[in-house]
Design a binder for these strands. Structure first.
Length: 898
RNA sequence: GGGAGUUUAGCUCAGCUGGUUCAGAGCACUUGCCUUACAAGCAAGGGGUCAUUGGUUCGAAUCCAAUAACUCCCACCA
C-alpha cells in the first residue's frame, strides 16, 4: 500500500465530518442507555469563532465523544444566543450603512431587518464549530428566540410575576447611553481611568453676612463630575466634622448654577476623602440617590437618555456630558469658583457590551427578587450536588449569592423577548387617571384579566421593552428539551439534569448561578452535576486576546495550518481546568507532529509482510506484546482517574506518552522485523489490536486522524467485510477500560529499558556506532537483577550479540550500574582509562554522599524509634544498596589502576 | 476596602492524606545521527536552595505563621 509520508489533515477532516453527519452519528434519541447530556454555552449570534470558543468546545467534544464510546447515549445540544444588546448594535449599524435610521422604523419593520440579519450571519459560528470536529446533535440546534424558547421565556415571566417574584419599580439603574438601555449590575465593568478631581467653591447663601464676620464664607467640595452640579440638591458633611460645624443649618449656593441647597449632615461621608464635603446629586449617583431618599431631597435629572444635557442643564442643554464637563469648568474657573484641580485615578463603570461610560439613572424597570431563590442555589453547590472544577470557584459563587441584589431584567431594546405586560389607563371616581398593568401570556389573556380585575375593556398598550438576554439563557438546559412548556415530556425526563457544563468563569454569575436557580425553580433539581471552568485564553505575553490588540489568531486559519486535531491537542495540552492558558501557536505544532507520528506508525505497520504459514514466533515478540498490554492497562487506569477529576490535559498527556514513547519508541522497535523479513501473524494481529485500542483512547482528543487510521488498520478479506468497515466508524467502538496488570512485569521492563539506555549511552559517549555489535556482561548481585525474559529485547534494541550472566567483574571493559547491578561491555578499542576513572569517581562521590545522608537518618534514635517500621526498613535497604554500590565502584576503580 | 488564588527547570504545568533515589512531565535546549515508518524524526544528555523567613516534626516542595511578588473576583469614597 502506498501511503504518503506526511499526514495531510485537510482532505481527511472534511471527509470524515461529512461521513459522521451522513451516518447521523451525533444524533441522540432517548433510549434505554444511560444519557450523557451537555448543553453548549450558546455563542452570540453576532459572534465569530475565537480561541475561547475553540477551547471550550474542544473540551466539550472530548467529554461527549468519550461518553459516547463508553456506551452512554451522548447528546450535545448546540444553539445560539440572540444577545440583545450586541445584536441590536450590529443591526443598527447595518441599517445605518443602508442609510436607514432605526428611529424611522416601526417595531415590526425593525424586527424584520433584525431577523434578516440573524438568518444571514447568525449561523456562522456553528458552521465553524464543525471544522473543529464538534459532535453536536445538529438536528437539535436551538436559538434563544425560536418558538419554543420564546414561549418558555414568556411563560416563566408570567409565572414569576404571579408568584410575586417579578415587580416593576423606579430604581437607580445602570444606564448605557449608547445602547439607550438599562443594564444589570453584572454588565458594568469598572475600569481604572485617569481623571481629575475638581475642588469647587460653594458659597454660603447670605452674601452680606460673610463679609461682615470675616468668616470663611464658602465650603470646598471635591468632585470628579462637575457637569452634574446642575443636579445638585444638597451638600453633605460628616456630623462630627469640626471643620464644618459652623455650616450647620445653613444653605449654600451651587456654583455657576445659583441654586440654593441645604447643608446636610450624614455619617456616610468619609472625612478623610477630598475636603470631607460631598455634593449630592440624587438623580445621578446611587449613593446620592440613597441620601436623597433619606433626607427627602429633590432629584433633578439633567441628562437625556443619550448622555447629553436636557433642559435642566440650562445653557449647557444639548451638550454631551463630557463636553459639558470641560465647558462648565472653564466657566467656573473664570468665575473664580474653582479652588484647585488634582489628577485623580478612579474607577469608572463601562458597559460590557458597548463600552460606553455608564450613567446611573433613575428609571422605571422590571426587577426580579433574588434573595429566596439564591438561597436554594447556594445550597446545592455547598452540599456538593453540583461540583465545580476547580473547586475554588465555589468561594466566588458563595460570595455573590450571599450578597445578591435584585436583578434588573428589562432592557430598552426591540431585539429580544418582549415583556408580556400590558398597561391600561383607568379613571378613578374622583376623575384621576391611574395606570395599571396586567401580565399575561398574550394580549388575549391580558384582555381577559383586565376585564375581570378592573372591568376594563379599552385599549391595551404592551410594554415596549424586552428582557435581559440572560433571562432566556438561564432556562437553556430546560428549554432546550421543552421542559418549561411541557414539563413532563419524555425528553426532559430523559436528558435532564444534564451532566457537565463547560464554561468560562467570567459568566459564573450571569449564567451558571442563574441556571442553577432556574433549575431549582422549574425542575426542583440541579441543571447539571459538574461545572468545568475553563481558563481564559491569553497571548504568550499574558494579555487577554482582543480584537483591538490584534493578538488573537484566527482559529480557522490555525485549523487549516495544523489540522483540527493539531489545534485541539495544542489547546488541551496547556489548559488544566481553571488555569489561564498563554496560547502560542507553536503548541499546535506539537499536535500536528503527533498526528504525523501516528500516521507514520500506521505506515510502518501496514508495510509489514505477514507470515501466515509455519510462523515461528520470536521470543521478544511474545514478551513485547505481553508488556505492551500490561502497560496499556496501567496507563488506562491513570487516564480514568484523570477523567474522573476532569484533568483533561493530564489524560491527554498520558495518552500521548503511551502512544509515542511506549508504543512507537519501545513496542514497535521491539517487534519490528528486520528489513525484508516478515512478521509472524500472531504478533501482527496483536499489534493491530493494540494500535486500534490506542486509537480509541485518542479519538476523543483527535477525532479525525484516529478515524482515518482506524479505517486503514482494518483488514478486509472479502468485499462484504470491506463494505462493512467502510460503513462503520471509530466513534461507535468501545473505549477500553483498565484491567488488572502485573506491576512486576512493568518493573522488569523498566529495568530492561534502563539497560538498553545504558548501552546506548555508552556508545554515544564513546563515539561508537550503533551498528557495531557489543557483548554485555551482567554481574548478578544478590538483590535486584535483570529478568532474563527481556534478554532478547535487550539484544535487539541495544544491538548486543550476547548477554552473559557472570559472577565477577570483567577485565578490559567499560561498565555502568543500574541500581546495584553492574554491567560490563568489553571494548574492541582502547579504553580511555582516565576518563573512565573520572566518571567512576564522580559516581562514587555521589553514592558516598547519599550513604552519609542515609546513615545520619539511621543514626538518629528518634527516627528509628519514631518513624513507621516500613520507612525505617526502606532506609536500611537504601543503606545496604549504597554500600554495595560503593564497594562495586571502588573495585572498578582499582581495576582500572591495575 | 473585602475575599480567593498562585509562586517548583528557560516556558507551561504535575507533585493526593508529610516518608520508596522525590525533586517530575511536555516543550525548549545541548551532542551525535538524513539507521528503508516518521528530520513534523531517532538516540543520548544537561538543567531547579521547590518565592523568602521562621515554626511544627525523627523527617517539609508537601502542614502552620509572617513577608514579598503576581493574578482574579467582589465592593465603588465624591
Amino acid at each position: 500500500m502506498e501511503i504518503a509520508s506526511k499526514y495531510n489533515p485537510r482532505a481527511v477532516e472534511e471527509k470524515w465530518y461529512e461521513f459522521w453527519l451522513e451516518k447521523k452519528l451525533f444524533h441522540s434519541e432517548p433510549d434505554r442507555r444511560r444519557p450523557y447530556t451537555v448543553v453548549i454555552p450558546p455563542p452570540n449570534v453576532t459572534g465569530v469563532l475565537h480561541m475561547g470558543h475553540m477551547l471550550n468546545n474542544t473540551i466539550q467534544d472530548v467529554l461527549v465523544r468519550r461518553a459516547r464510546m463508553m456506551g452512554k447515549n451522548a447528546c450535545w445540544v448546540p444553539g445560539t444566543d440572540h444577545a440583545s444588546i450586541s445584536t441590536e448594535a450590529k443591526v443598527v449599524k447595518m441599517l445605518a450603512e443602508r442609510g436607514i435610521n432605526k428611529r424611522d422604523l416601526s417595531r415590526d419593520e425593525y424586527m424584520k431587518y433584525a431577523w434578516e440579519w440573524k438568518e444571514k450571519y447568525g449561523g456562522i459560528i456553528l458552521k465553524q464549530l464543525r471544522k473543529l470536529g464538534a459532535s453536536c446533535d445538529w438536528d437539535r440546534t436551538a436559538f434563544t428566540m425560536d418558538d419554543i424558547r420564546y414561549e418558555s421565556v414568556i411563560q416563566v415571566f408570567v409565572d414569576l410575576y404571579n408568584k410575586g417574584l417579578i415587580y416593576r419599580g423606579a430604581r437607580m439603574v445602570n444606564w448605557d447611553p449608547q445602547a439607550l438601555t438599562a443594564v444589570s449590575d453584572e454588565e458594568v465593568i469598572y475600569k481604572e481611568s485617569h481623571g481629575k478631581l475638581f475642588y469647587l467653591r460653594y458659597f454660603v447663601e447670605n452674601v452680606e453676612r460673610r463679609a461682615e464676620n470675616g468668616e470663611r464664607d464658602y465650603i470646598v467640595v471635591a468632585t470628579t463630575r462637575p457637569e452634574t452640579i446642575m443636579g445638585d440638591t444638597a451638600v453633605c458633611v460628616h456630623p462630627e466634622d469640626e471643620r464644618y460645624q459652623w455650616l450647620k443649618g445653613k444653605k449654600v449656593v451651587v456654583p455657576g448654577v445659583g441654586r440654593v441647597v441645604p447643608i446636610i449632615m450624614d455619617e456616610y461621608v468619609d472625612r478623610e476623602f477630598g475636603t470631607g464635603a460631598l455634593k449630592i446629586t440624587p438623580a445621578h449617583d446611587i449613593n446620592d440617590y440613597n441620601l436623597g431618599m433619606k433626607y427627602n431631597l429633590d432629584s433633578i435629572d439633567i441628562f437625556n437618555d443619550n448622555g447629553t444635557l436636557n433642559a435642566n442643564g440650562g445653557k449647557y442643554a444639548g451638550m454631551d456630558r463630557f463636553a459639558c464637563r470641560k465647558a462648565i469648568m472653564k466657566d467656573l474657573e473664570e468665575a473664580g469658583l474653582v479652588e484647585k484641580i488634582e489628577d485623580y485615578v478612579n474607577k469608572v463603570g463601562h458597559s460590557e457590551r458597548t463600552d460606553a461610560v455608564i450613567e446611573p439613572k433613575l428609571s422605571t424597570q422590571w426587577f426580579m427578587k433574588m434573595s429566596d431563590i439564591a438561597k436554594k442555589a447556594l445550597e446545592v453547590v455547598e452540599d456538593g450536588k453540583i461540583k465545580f472544577h476547580p473547586d475554588k470557584f465555589r468561594n466566588t459563587y458563595r460570595h455573590w449569592l450571599e450578597n445578591i441584589k435584585d436583578w434588573c431584567i428589562s432592557r430598552q431594546l426591540w431585539w429580544g423577548h418582549r415583556i408580556p405586560a400590558w398597561y391600561l389607563e383607568l379613571r378613578t371616581e374622583s376623575g384621576e387617571r391611574r395606570t395599571e398593568v396586567v401580565v399575561a401570556l398574550n394580549e388575549e389573556e391580558a384582555r381577559k384579566i383586565a376585564a375581570e380585575k378592573y372591568g376594563y375593556t379599552g385599549e391595551l398598550r404592551q410594554d415596549e421593552d424586552v428582557l435581559d438576554t440572560w433571562f432566556s439563557s438561564w432556562l437553556w438546559p430546560i428549554s432546550l428539551f421543552d421542559g418549561i412548556r411541557n414539563p413532563d415530556n419524555e425528553e426532559i425526563k430523559y436528558y435532564y439534569p444534564t451532566d457537565d457544563l463547560i464554561t468560562a468563569p467570567d459568566i459564573i454569575f450571569f449564567w451558571v448561578a442563574r441556571m442553577i436557580m432556574a433549575g431549582e425553580e422549574y425542575r426542583g433539581e440541579v441543571p447539571f452535576k459538574n461545572v468545568y471552568f475553563t481558563g481564559i485564553v491569553r497571548d504568550k505575553l499574558g494579555r487577554k486576546m482582543s480584537k483591538s490588540l490584534g493578538n488573537s489568531p484566527d482559529p480557522i486559519e490555525l485549523i487549516e495550518k495544523y489540522g483540527a486535531d493539531g489545534v485541539r491537542m495544542g489547546m488541551l495540552l496547556t489548559a488544566p481546568a481553571g488555569n489561564d492558558l498563554p496560547f502560542d501557536e507553536s503548541i499546535c505544532e506539537q499536535g500536528r507532529n503527533f498526528a504525523n507520528k501516528i500516521w507514520n506508525a500506521l505506515r510502518l505497520v501496514k508495510g509489514w509482510q505477514v507470515e501466515t504459514e509455519n510462523a515461528e514466533r520470536k521470543p521478544e515478540n511474545e514478551v513485547a506484546v505481553e508488556w505492551m498490554e500490561q502497560r496499556m492497562a496501567c496507563v488506562l487506569e491513570q487516564i480514568e482517574k484523570d477523567f474522573d477529576q476532569y484533568r483533561l490535559s493530564e489524560a491527554l498527556m498520558n495518552t500521548y506518552k503511551l502512544m509515542w514513547d511506549d508504543f512507537c519508541s519501545w513496542y514497535l522497535e521491539m517487534v519490528k522485523p528486520a528489513y525484508g523479513t516478515p512478521i509472524d501473524k500472531e504478533t501482527y494481529d496483536a499489534t493491530i489490536s493494540i494500535f486500534e485500542r490506542l486509537m480509541y483512547m485518542l479519538h476523543p482528543f483527535m477525532p479525525f486522524v484516529t478515524e482515518e487510521v482506524w479505517h486503514l488498520l482494518q483488514e478486509a478479506d472479502s468485499e462484504a467485510k470491506a463494505e462493512m468497515i467502510a460503513q462503520s466508524s471509530i466513534m461507535i467502538q468501545h473505549m477500553p477500560s483498565s484491567v488488572f496488570y502485573d506491576q512486576r512485569m512493568l518493573d522488569d521492563c523498566t529495568m530492561a529499558r534502563d539497560v538498553i539506555a545504558g548501552v546506548r549511552n555508552l556508545r554515544n559517549s564513546r563515539g561508537l556506532s550503533p551498528k557495531e555489535q557489543l557483548e554485555l556482561f551482567v554481574v548478578c548481585g544478590d538483590g535486584k537483577r535483570m529478568n532474563s525474559r527481556f534478554d532478547s529485547i535487550v539484544k535487539k534494541l541495544a544491538n548486543v550479540s550476547d548477554i552473559k550472566y557472570v559472577d565477577n567483574k570483567v577485565e578490559g571493559a567499560v561498565s555502568f550500574m543500574i541500581g546495584t547491578t553492574e554491567f560490563f561491555v568489553p571494548m574492541s578499542q582502547n579504553v580511555d582509562v582516565e576518563a573512565e576513572k573520572k566518571k567512576l569517581e564522580e559516581e562514587l562521590k555521589y553514592a558516598e554522599g547519599f550513604l552519609a545522608s542515609v546513615m545520619k537518618k539511621l543514626g538518629n534514635e528518634k527516627f528509628v524509634n519514631g518513624a513507621p517500621e516500613k520507612v525505617v526498613a526502606v532506609e536500611r535497604q537504601k543503606k545496604a544498596d549504597a554500600e554495595q554500590k560503593i564497594a562495586a565502584l571502588k573495585a572498578q576503580i582499582e581495576n582500572l589502576k591495575a
